[in-house]
Amino acid sequence: MGQRFEGAVCLVTGGGGGIGSGTARLLAAEGAHVIIADLSQDRAQQVAGEIREMGFQASPHAVDVTSQESVDRLLDDSWRDVGPVNLAVTCAGIIKIQPFLDLPAADWDRTLAVNLKGTFLVIQGVARRLVQAGRKGRMVAVSSVAGRGARADVADYAASKAGVISIVRSSAMALAEHGMAVNAVCPGVVATEMTYAIQRMRSQDTGENPEEMLTRSVTGIPLGRIETPEDVAKAIAFLLSEDAGYVTGQALNVDGGLEFD
């Protein structure tokens, strides 16, 4: 594929997690300097270190995406230390399984703060600086198939991911005149720690074996195999590339055939 992202600076929030770190590795291998931003400074450092050991460019940064101040600090530090952040991928997200009738308002607020407000703050922060500098850029938000369908035991998560699709559309319309594109991906069942944790939580509720549970959910995927972080990363990289120049405001299902609209 060559070096599609040579000279670019790409922010990856949730960069310490499964999809975030997989995406960061791919973008770095194609020439980008990646900023690995994560709530956990340790995880950010670990992923950035691994990427640098592969001979690519990466810098760690701690961030709390729910805090405007923290996001501003991340972006100002990155511009000063690395250069104009012209690509961004928002992977920071949380999930917790609980029955709808028991879902506490505080958990709802927390999930919406990280998954939706966090995405908004990063998109707006990156865009403000690019507009001010007269530069163009491309961003991809990680939504989910849960943002398309119904989820009885993660209603807060599903609502937050549906919100991500909406903020991507609105920001794309607002930023088109500035030469910026904003899109989303909706992954399905990805082989990450988060997915395995969900299976463990669900199996605690039902008494089912977590492996059997995962096997059953993979059987339901038309493509017939679990999704890898690389499957997601490839679609994200495409949406960040020049080849996707006329694609904006879209949410691509990268899910092996689980969802369509």
Partner: peptide
């Protein structure tokens, strides 16, 4: 390879 049956809008929004 992991995209199945999708219709990708390439239409400038």
């Amino acid at each position: 390879d992991y995209m199945v049956g999708q219709a990708v809008n390439v239409c400038g929004g």
